[in-house]
Simulated assay, not measured.
Amino acid sequence: MKFTTLAAAMTLLAAPAFAESHMTATDTAMAAPTGDAAAGEEQFNKQCVACHVVQDPATDEVLAGRNAKVGPNLYGTMGHQAGAVEGYNFGDSLKAWGEAGGTLTEENFVAYVQDPTGFLREVLDDKRARGKMAYQVRDEAQAHDLFAFLSTFGGEDDAATDGGEAPAATN
């Protein structure tokens, strides 16, 4: 009886440490972004507006960018399933990753925008995978700032439930 009680107590004491070291991508997605949203807005206006817009689907109000439609509307996408914006024709590789549970956590977003094709090849373990986004954010800090900025637009209440695995960000 004493051994069982001791084993149970040790298990309970170890649980918080184990849980912390094995955070899921969902936990990461819900964590506060590490970048600077104001700097991200500046970068968005320099790097992203040619292809993307942030438009509230409920009101059709453009919150950031112009009416660009080359890339998907980025409203409410951070922390959610990748390749799932309705009305946009995503590439097969990004759709496959999203359907497999891939979400736009900060880690995934930063790695993706720095090397879209390389990221997809790694997470899908498929050397033929390709990203449709040709532009690459060269500076990792700017990618974190962009994530922080885009995280301010919608979607906070219904975070994704499965994050998929991401490779380490590349420079």
Rank of each mutant, 00 (worst) to 15 (best):
K2V: 06
F3C: 01
F3Q: 13
T4C: 02
T5V: 14
A9Q: 00
M10V: 12
T11Q: 01
T11L: 13
L12K: 06
L12P: 05
A14V: 14
A14D: 12
A15I: 15
A15D: 10
F18P: 09
F18V: 15
A19Y: 13
A19S: 14
S21W: 12
T26G: 00
D27C: 07
D27I: 07
M30N: 14
A31H: 10
A32R: 12
A32T: 13
P33F: 06
T34G: 11
T34Y: 02
T34K: 14
D36Y: 05
A37G: 09
A38C: 00
A39D: 07
G40W: 07
E42P: 01
N45K: 08
V49K: 11
A50S: 15
C51N: 13
C51Y: 09
C51W: 10
V53S: 08
V54K: 03
V54Q: 05
P57W: 08
P57R: 06
A58F: 09
D60T: 12
V62N: 04
G65A: 06
G65L: 01
G65K: 02
V70T: 15
V70C: 08
G71N: 10
P72D: 07
Y75M: 08
Y75W: 11
G76C: 04
T77M: 11
T77R: 07
M78I: 13
G79W: 04
G79Y: 03
H80Y: 08
Q81R: 15
A82G: 11
A84F: 07
N89Q: 14
F90Y: 15
D92T: 10
S93G: 05
L94M: 11
K95A: 09
G98A: 13
G98V: 13
E99N: 12
E99V: 01
E99C: 00
G101R: 14
G101L: 13
L104E: 12
T105P: 01
E106C: 03
F109D: 04
V110R: 11
A111V: 08
A111D: 10
A111S: 15
A111L: 09
V113K: 05
V113Y: 03
T117P: 05
G118W: 03
E122D: 15
D125I: 09
D126F: 09
D126G: 12
G131F: 06
K132I: 13
K132L: 12
M133L: 14
A134H: 10
A134I: 15
Y135N: 10
R138V: 12
D139F: 02
D139S: 09
E140C: 06
A141N: 13
A141C: 03
Q142L: 10
Q142W: 00
A143Q: 09
H144D: 11
D145L: 05
L146A: 04
A148N: 01
A148Q: 03
L150R: 02
T152H: 01
T152N: 02
F153I: 00
G154V: 01
G155R: 01
E156N: 06
E156K: 12
A159V: 03
A159D: 01
T161H: 00
T161M: 08
D162G: 06
G163H: 01
G163T: 00
E165H: 11
E165P: 09
P167C: 07
A168P: 02
T170S: 14
T170A: 13
N171Y: 05
